[in-house]
Design a binder for these strands. Structure first.
Lengths: 180, 180, 180, 180
DNA sequence: TATGAATGAGTCTTCATTCAT
DNA sequence: TATGAATGAAGACTCATTCAT
């Protein structure tokens, strides 16, 4: 039923009509209200879930094999390919639209970039020690890298031949230590 | 009066009420209709203008002094600092929202990434010849670079301390030829 | 199951949701429809029953002991104390709401004040002969007395400390022959 | 525009559709929202006004000529004849319906019967001293009298041939000192 | 030219009623 | 017989657009 994510992600909170979600889910409009109190609540729930899963996703990097750079490369690949697209788009709407319920706004404020930096910092520092990663301040490196990634995912590049999703190796240039 | 751009850029076409534009412009709602036939027309006009200006802006790169890399760096800096922010956001809404008038959709389809690639290709090729730029296929390099830029601008990073706008030098790593 | 009366009486026909009746009765919503064709039918049935019982109740006055005034006093006391409250409230909704099913409206039109007057007239005439009751035209006396009573019962005075239910003796002043 | 009172009074808050008020007022539904934030607000406003006017009305009794009994008789006549009907009906809905906005509920709780008793008590005491009024405790006398009146007005007797509005003289028997 | 009152189509939400289990 | 999930029609409310002034 949370495939309402699909509609919200593409159209934002106002652009989405409950009837769209309903027909996307293959049920009647009325039934939606049996499961979700309101459009706002539904949206907020999705935002919450998006944030939770994103954190889990980021943390999973430590389970990946290989060197720090290997890990980063794999996670990046995953993010780029996988369905996380919708989450990025949803979060973008949640961040930028003014019609977002206050509850959702609060959720977002609590879950800042800092959260992700804290998770990734040890890995990046290790990567720098091993000489794999560029020597910029890790905070900045991470923050910029995630911003770049967010931007790319938000564009909804798939299905738009105008934009081109950069290959992972290209992206990694930002953080890789340029061969001396 | 076209400071309606401000509202459309931030809130998208549905999120924007004519009354918002009116009060932002300091006039009455009714007066808007003396200058623009409809909300859709107004939006379409803005999109048209955004595209026109973007092309002019890109072309202006050839007026800039210095080597190809210098030119690219300066243009990038300009884009990042200047008010082009709003254009990127507007175009993002125009590209992703389904409520956009067909006329605007058509405009966008006509003005593809190809347009920009064609403009920039000679410059990039020159840069590669001079050994400044990475050796990837110029088309791909340009397309990816513009995608990255679009993504960053779309995020509306200003006013959100969570994201961090990468420094220009960091961004350039993407296209610079790594020191051998 | 007819304790749906409770809900209808308090909330009127529109204010009452079938789910309220169901939970008041301790059954599921769906089950209600096994016993009553529709909300309207249920309401109509209750109105019918209310009217029937009111007539029986009024007629029972002749079974009471004592003089005409004694009888009237006892019946009044009964009405004031007993659960007839709900019937008065139900009938008030039935009389004043426009959403009442036509069938119920018809029922009410057939069962006019005249019905009650016809029942009580002999008793009042007797009371007047015996010098207990005021000498006004019996029709008027009865009609006014019942109107007063209806009004009081309709107010739903219980549970509202603002109103005060008059003592029976106070009420009787309306019809008692003032001591010469 | 407050002739919305007419519809609310007859049909209660749920039974009333904004479109009814609109067509009763001869305007479009949308226009209602230019003057009143919402149905609830409108209802609350009417309740407020009803209470204010009722107090003014009651207080005006001291401007009337004649003995206390004369004053009471005139006020009663006025209440019975005049358009206060709608106010009584409105207040009844406000008191008994559960769908009434909290703000309105609060208003009602603040404006108790006590308010009216305080206003009328001096008059009734004077009337008792002059031997015109029954010797019951004035509080009780007033409270019961007002309850009776409220009940009668709430019934919406006009337009229902079944009920009969008692003549004023009949009603006064309730408070008049029976001739010794 | 400028205003803002007025309209009505469109969206969210509720709830009587049905129906598979 | 009993449940409660599912449907869809109806009502509150918003807002693009018009129009009298």
């Amino acid at each position: 039923m949370e495939a309402a994510l699909k509609v919200f992600a593409r159209r934002g909170i106002i652009g989405t009509k409950m009837s769209m979600i309903a027909s996307e889910a293959g049920v009647s409009t009325g039934l939606l209200y049996r499961y979700f109190d309101s459009k706002d609540k539904l949206f907020t729930t999705l935002v919450q879930q998006a944030m939770d899963e994103s954190i889990v996703g980021i943390k999973s990097i430590y389970q990946l094999p290989g060197s720090p750079l290997d890990k980063i490369k794999m996670l990046t690949t995953e993010i780029l390919n996988e369905g996380s697209q919708l989450y990025f788009m949803l979060m973008h709407h949640a961040r930028t639209s003014d019609e977002v319920p206050i509850t959702a706004k609060k959720l977002i404020e609590e879950n800042t970039m800092k959260t992700y930096i804290d998770i990734l910092e040890p890995l990046f520092i290790e990567g720098q020690k091993e000489g794999e990663l560029a020597a910029d301040p890790p905070c900045e490196l991470i923050s910029c890298y995630l911003s770049l990634l967010s931007g790319l995912m938000t564009l909804n590049i798939q299905g738009d031949e105008n934009y081109q999703m950069p290959k992972v190796d290209l992206l990694l240039r930002f953080i890789i230590r340029s061969s001396s």
